[in-house]
Design a protein around this nucleic acid. Structure first.
Lengths: 251, 251
DNA sequence: TTTGTCCTAAGTGTATACATAATAGGGACG
DNA sequence: CGTCCCTATTATGTATACACTTAGGACAAA
């Protein structure tokens, strides 16, 4: 993002203008630089992003499908307002689909190397949340957590399902890599992480034992952790825009 | 769709070129005019659809999110190959999400007028599948069936969920409005319709009684009807492309 | 002061031109 | 006769020009 365009010409693959516009717009919206409800003027984005209207338009169509903007009836797009109920629904959708993935993984049987990789990710999380390691390195936690979730989805073996889950995880608070933190170093936060990890272990065990229903139920419950975290934060009077969100995302 | 373009100038809203391109491309793909795996050349589509490249490109981005085409690594798009396992997964996803909708409707409580409308739709289906009415008017059945499914989704009261379900229903065989018929007028088909209608009644009753888990489970099972119909058809040696599909879709 | 109308400016939808990358086909050489 | 390379063509990605619609404001009249 802060890379000048020419640096792409050398070492790495030059990202298309469309992709760059999409990523930049996404971070503008999630970062709150573009307010909810605000119209996203194409020409303004041309000035702001340094690409022409065509890639901006393409990016807007993509973002529309990601639920980050919505088409106005008169034409053009506006930043979608993320009302609390819709965010909770998004979390529920993600949990439901990840639950489906876990069940499919259990019923079909997951590839041994995927199981091993998942166990490895969980071991790494264990090291992060080990009591002697406090304060917890949240970046690491989020990172390994994302890896585990990705692996579960991969075990299901369906691109269609993977893409649908990815789509449901785009919303800032709906992603499994998003942690809503009341107080980053509190005992409550620590215990929440421990509980999440316990759920991870249970899901993986259920998948290995071919217990589809159990895997599904536990994965759903796991998603509801994010659900209740967010609800508690909101009940504590925080507004959505002010919430501290740690997000990395290994994708 | 069969309306000439100029009629739009008078009574109804003139459809945008982008939307027209999207609909035409979709029917070309679903209708098999464009073969799976075939590249969708933009210039050829300009000739074929009578719109310029810009709306064709926009339509292709939309169709990519609908899983009907996929982006080629070299650039451009190709018609997505619909392998059997992925279709079954799509049905499972739709069933899972519709199940979530039914549960949410039950737990939140659905608006009385929506309940009444749903019951009305089911009464209309009853009339269609009444024994004296044989042979069954499948167009009517599909129509009222789609209305019922839409109403259940509406009862959940979430635009996000509605859009996600709509997206999952785009694939030709995954829609609730799609009936895979081994033999259109056979006794088996008739009994399958009766069973579906029984499931409809059960779902609606569960929603009214606020029985969320029951509503969800029954809705899932209902979707698996399509699942097993398709599997039986494939087991009978039919190829996907040859299957007779009746699809109307009230949307 | 308020309301209605007209005018200006901005914005989107669409078409098209241009540049670059991929591809297919043919010809030459081994 | 087969294989490899070069070239011509085609396709996409991007930028931009044009037309039409919509929104907003100012001015005049009640």
């Amino acid at each position: 993002m802060d890379l000048p365009a020419r640096s792409a010409a050398k070492g790495e693959r030059a990202a298309s203008q469309t992709l760059r516009a999409q990523l930049m717009l996404r971070s503008l919206i999630i970062g709150g630089k573009l307010r909810p409800g605000e119209r996203v003027s194409e020409l303004q984005m041309v000035d702001r992003l340094g690409v022409s209207r065509t890639p901006v338009r393409a990016a807007l169509i993509h973002l529309e499908h990601e639920n980050l903007v919505e088409a106005l009836p008169t034409g053009g797009y506006a930043v979608k307002e993320l009302a609390e109920p819709e965010i909770l629904v998004s979390i529920e959708i993600r949990g439901t689909l990840e639950g489906l993935a876990a069940r499919m993984a259990a019923e079909r049987g997951a590839a041994p190397q995927l199981i091993a990789a998942a166990r490895e990710a969980l071991d790494l999380i264990d090291a992060v949340v080990e009591p002697v390691a406090r304060p917890v390195n949240l970046e690491h936690y989020v990172n390994y957590n994302a890896r585990f979730h990705d692996l579960i989805v991969e075990m299901a073996g369906s691109d269609t399902l993977a893409r649908q889950i990815e789509r449901a995880s785009v919303l800032p608070f709906a992603s499994p890599s998003a942690l809503v933190l009341l107080e980053p170093d509190s005992v409550e936060t620590y215990q929440a992480l421990l509980m999440s990890q316990l759920q991870h272990r249970t899901v993986l065990a259920a998948v290995e034992l071919r217990q589809g229903t159990r895997a599904e139920a536990m994965m759903r419950e796991h998603a509801r952790t994010a659900h209740s975290n967010l609800q508690r934060a909101l009940a504590a009077g925080r507004k959505l825009a002010e919430l501290a969100v740690v997000e990395l995302g290994g994708r």
